[in-house]
Amino acid sequence: MMVAPVTPKSWYLPSKPHKFCPGCGHGIVLKALGEAIDELEIQDRTVFGCDIGCSLLSWDFFACDSTQTHHGRTTPVMVGIKRSRPELITIGYMGDGGGYSIGSQHLLNAAVRNEKVTLILVNNTNYGMTGGQMAPTTLPGQKTETSPFGRDPEETGYPTKGPEFIAELTPDSAYVARATVSKYNQLKRFIRNALRNQMEGNGFSFVEVLSTCPTNWRTNAQQTWRFLEDEMEPYFPVGELKTPFGKGGAK
């Protein structure tokens, strides 16, 4: 009897165990991504690009050609690669700060141009690597290092709803979804769909993933999960916002 490998084939084993904090959601996202790469058999032609922020810790995560860029600039680097070599599968991996704040002009315009790249954005409602500052996605009232009394939307606006605005900007051939690390099978399906959309040359594909950051949230395991499921998921609805595929994957 075949036993399924514990780790995806496309993971780079010398870099394991990985460098993320205990309880961080990145590991789950990257496992789903690794399995999707395996299932779609695209390891040899994938170029994985990661941003600055905690996402950069994935720079040697995969046994795929990888490049690590500047804060917010993963999108244009991936666009440059894809425009030059359309046969490659380009995956940009970034956080909410990189995608929605410092790199928002790139994300927005890549979406408008329907660039045939796949971007995965991890939303953990704060800047993790720099020590837990307020992010575009910080929830109203949520305390961070730069909103110590809780985010006041009167002063700093409401959390960015990325997939919603990207769905508005993109044509029908784009794929836009929001997943959560609390629903693994759905997460993997969305990432697969996003990659498939690029492989078929349809258009832009974007998955935001709600994720956890117990280190900066200063939460224990139970509180972490509660914040994800009870605070984040109601504010950021999970699901496919735009898909060229019907139910069951048919176009």
């Binding site: 490049t67 666009v79 440059g80 002009q105």
Partner: peptide, 26 residues
């Protein structure tokens, strides 16, 4: 040969970085 008018100069520079990594004279 190819061309892309990017959203700003930051993007123009980084797309060039991507393209040369992919092995193209950009």
């Amino acid at each position: 040969r190819g061309f892309l008018q990017t959203e700003d100069e930051i993007s123009a520079g980084f797309t060039v970085c991507g393209a040369v990594q992919a092995g193209k004279k950009a």
